[in-house]
Simulated assay, not measured.
Amino acid sequence: MNQREIIAILRGLRSENAIAVTDVLINAGITKIEVPLNSPDPFVTIEKMVNHAGDAAQIGAGTVLTIAEVDRLSDIGAAMVVSPNCDQDVIAHTAAKGMASYPGVFTATECFAAIQLGATGLKFFPAFKLGPDGLSALKAVLPADVATYAVGGVGPDDFANWYKAGVTGFGLGSNLFKPDWSIDQIETAAQSAVTAFDRVFG
């Protein structure tokens, strides 16, 4: 599986488009894919994607707020749980279920709480408010091996500055996908994001 650290955030994805969008992203080299739970019929969509490409990509949900949602995602074979917040119960339960956990954090307190509970990586959200300088300051005290993702108001044009600050990867939403975009538009955006990532991260 390709290891580019780009998480595709498919907010608003409809089930009937799920397979085509999943294939386009994987073919472009993006293999971490989340469908936020405030999308239409998200569990149906995620299960469809997992059954189609769960062996080729890490597929899961975003905007996960409860352990009941974690259980439902586990039941349909999802591999990833992404949240906007640092909920201790959700993080611990996700880890216990064997799924990757990406909780939203912003402060040192939230970062260390998430790490202690078994988070796979830290989702800095909203990243544009923290900025690369803020991440750099936090990286000075975080364990060197912890994965960090900038999410929210960050696009391919910002990759280089965040890379210099030590970020691991990015979560891309509207830079990568909009519900009314054609498959060709999504493909172009995905290829552009991958090209920008490879240029910066080598």
Rank of each mutant, 00 (worst) to 15 (best):
V44A: 08
T45Q: 06
T45I: 02
E47S: 14
V50F: 00
N51A: 12
N51Q: 14
N51W: 05
N51F: 05
H52S: 13
A53T: 06
D55M: 10
D55P: 01
A57F: 03
A57P: 03
A61M: 07
G62I: 09
G62W: 02
T63S: 14
T63Q: 05
V64T: 10
V64P: 00
L65R: 12
I67E: 08
V70G: 00
D71E: 14
D71L: 03
R72V: 05
S74V: 05
S74Q: 13
S74H: 14
I76Y: 06
G77P: 12
A78E: 05
A78H: 01
A79C: 08
A79L: 11
M80D: 03
M80S: 06
V81N: 03
V81D: 02
V82Y: 02
V82S: 01
S83T: 14
S83L: 10
P84G: 08
N85M: 13
C86R: 00
Q88Y: 03
Q88S: 13
D89Q: 14
V90I: 08
I91C: 09
T94L: 06
A95F: 11
A95D: 05
G98S: 09
G98T: 07
G98Y: 10
M99L: 14
M99V: 02
A100K: 14
S101K: 07
V105C: 15
F106C: 12
T107L: 11
T107M: 12
A108N: 07
T109E: 11
T109W: 03
E110Q: 12
E110N: 06
E110L: 03
A113W: 03
A114H: 03
I115E: 10
Q116N: 12
L117P: 01
